[in-house]
Amino acid sequence: MGLSVDAATGLPILNAGADAGAIPLPRVGDLERTAAKAGAITTTIEKVIQWGRYSSLWPALFGLACCAIEMMATGAARYDMSRFGCEVFRASPRQADLMIVAGRVSQKMGPVLRQIYDQMPEPKWVISMGACASSGGMFNNYAIIQGVDKVVPVDVYLPGCPPRPEGLLDAVLKLQTKIAAERPSSLRG
């Protein structure tokens, strides 16, 4: 396991490493075992919040170009994103907490993208899907913003042109691991 302990707080941290995607288990000690015998489960508020956040990510529909097609493929029959609790694509940014920037971001689209990001409620995360969104990709020209991280903060960069659906699923799992390792008090907002 990539579990380590935060020296300052003594809380477990799950590292997004070789076993990324693994769900952090509550540390079980004598107290917990005793409580479990009595039919109670003990945990911390923070862990429950984290669990709620990473288990049901609601992506905003933000398909731009080719990657959007692979994003749709990820949500469709064969790859079925709902296995990871991430299939509820919302048309309204107000109902979403994950933005999958799927495709190249043009200079004209940049302000729109930022506005939609601003409309999403906190906490929110961004996956930059594909080479174009991550770095401008092959389009190093006047029209394309060279990486969406110039416009919004990005949590997971996903390479590929376009990335395969498995890649997007991996990015979601990586993000879930990352969210699980965040402390709610240290979250943005």
Binding site: L64, G103, F139
Partner: peptide, 9 residues
């Protein structure tokens, strides 16, 4: 909104 500048590239 998806102008990519292909013709220039």
């Amino acid at each position: 909104f998806l102008h990519t500048g292909f013709e220039k590239s």
